[in-house]
């Protein structure tokens, strides 16, 4: 890296300018995507409602996280690994003390962290589950058929922060500022890619679930 005379310069850059650039793109991108959605609007529904929209919409946001038993029996792998991945990912993201410090600094919210050995274990499980999901994507006929370059790009930019985080935590790359710098940089990569890929599901799934739940609620179907 020619533009950096040493790893510390790189770390200063990723913690400073690079983070600001990534944050800038992330926020702008999210606003554009979300406003693009909402400004498209919905037609007024003239049919006589059997139930309300708001409650069932909100309920669906929660209840959609639980898969029906029939589908679970048909596709246990993706369901189980999907849960494991998301749970471990959120443990790592939200309960590692350095991450909490970041969130606290940016949003003013704070909560107790977990011992780093637990976070470390969650990281390993998250990494393994991501690899398992990649393998599944490459071998399952439906997933192989559906997958586009974007699916693999998203996998990669999601995998990198976990891998670099693990490496940084275990100080497997010397010097540490390089390891930490690479970890933060990989997160910034994720932030830049986020609004323009399916990673947006982390935000839009609430909208999607609400709309479907509301539509069902209106018809009196339990969501």
């Amino acid at each position: 890296m020619e533009m950096f005379s040493n790893a510390n310069d790189f770390l200063i850059w990723v913690r400073g300018d690079a983070f600001n650039i990534a944050l800038f793109i992330l926020i702008i991108g999210i606003f554009i995507r979300v406003m693009e959605i909402f400004l498209l609007g919905r037609k007024k529904d003239f049919s006589e409602p059997r139930g309300t929209e708001w409650g069932p919409g909100l309920k669906n946001i929660v209840s959609r996280s639980v898969v029906d038993s029939g589908t679970f029996k048909r596709a246990p792998f993706i369901v189980i690994v999907g849960y494991i991945w998301h749970i471990c990912f959120f443990i790592v993201l939200l309960f590692f003390v350095p991450h909490i410090e970041l969130i606290n600094a940016m949003l003013g919210l704070q909560w107790p962290g977990l011992p780093s050995q637990l976070v470390d274990a969650a990281t390993v499980i998250a990494i393994v589950s991501l690899i398992a999901m990649l393998w599944h994507r490459l071998t399952h006929p439906v997933l192989k058929f559906l997958s586009t370059y974007e699916d693999y790009l998203v996998w990669f930019v999601t995998f990198l922060p976990l891998l670099t985080g693990y490496i940084a935590f275990h100080r497997m790359i010397d010097p540490y500022p390089l390891a930490l710098g690479l970890h933060i940089f990989s997160v910034e990569l994720l932030m830049v890619v986020f609004p323009f890929t399916k990673l947006m599901h982390a935000i839009t799934l609430f909208i999607a679930r609400w709309y479907t739940g509301a539509m069902m609620g209106r018809k009196g179907i339990e969501s």
Binding site: E36, I37, R42, K43, K198, H201, L205, I207, A208
Partner: peptide
Amino acid sequence: DAPTAAFFSS
């Protein structure tokens, strides 16, 4: 419409 866009985004 908005739901369609939310669905594809998700």
